[in-house]
Design a protein around this nucleic acid. Sequence first.
DNA 1: CTGCTATGTTCGCGATTCCCGAACATGATG
DNA 2: CATCATGTTCGGGAATCGCGAACATAGCAG
Lengths: 117, 117
Amino acid sequence: MDAMASRTATELLHPDRAQLRFTTVLAALGDPVRLAIVARLADVEPDGELACTTFALPVSKSTQSGHFKTLREAGVIRQRDEGTRRLNRLRRDDLDARFPGLLDLAIPQGRQVIAGW
Amino acid sequence: MDAMASRTATELLHPDRAQLRFTTVLAALGDPVRLAIVARLADVEPDGELACTTFALPVSKSTQSGHFKTLREAGVIRQRDEGTRRLNRLRRDDLDARFPGLLDLAIPQGRQVIAGW
DNA sequence: CTGCTATGTTCGCGATTCCCGAACATGATG
DNA sequence: CATCATGTTCGGGAATCGCGAACATAGCAG
């Protein structure tokens, strides 16, 4: 079997828990749009998944796509395809294991970003 | 008196505690070089100040200048000029007040970055 | 099967940012 | 004054960002 992160060559790549890098995660969370995404996902925990459309973000569709990709490659969210929708889930367990307290700090700040929109 | 952040027009600008923005601070910390700077400054707390040269960073002088500026404008460090040296100090009190726990989370990670150099 | 819609990605372009070396500015030192 | 030390600023090339347009795929209606 393949111990790497992706199932096939064209599958979405998700870094392993051990591969998460603090600066990469911080850079991913250090953007209002992405932080808002994380806060919304935290509100549907656990096991809550949201399609990209449901976020009503103030940026274009292609920019949203890029933000989700950044979050996924940083290891902040997990994405899976279901039909034509791409469902997003917060990687709470992995983030809590590697950087305990970070999400609890970031999520309220993300809610504040949303409140300002 | 002037309630703003800078003393004169040409002085270094430092955002007020109330003006600190979470995403800006996170973006500032989300870079290995800058996180290493923060960790080094934390090791000389409290009241410890370090000149830019003392960091031995793996980037050019002009790039260092830019990183210090990013940290200062994000409100992470405070800079003051003494002769030809620019002394840097961590804004621990302001950061702890606005984002409690963040520095305690980031500093060990910054030390790890340095250890990997 | 043939459109048609809904959801996201990819592509190409202009704008911004990043990093570098070179040059500059300023203060200390002899 | 001449020299050195510490940082900043400037200009250019590389990388990134955000956008609209076009594309790809799944689901649905007929």
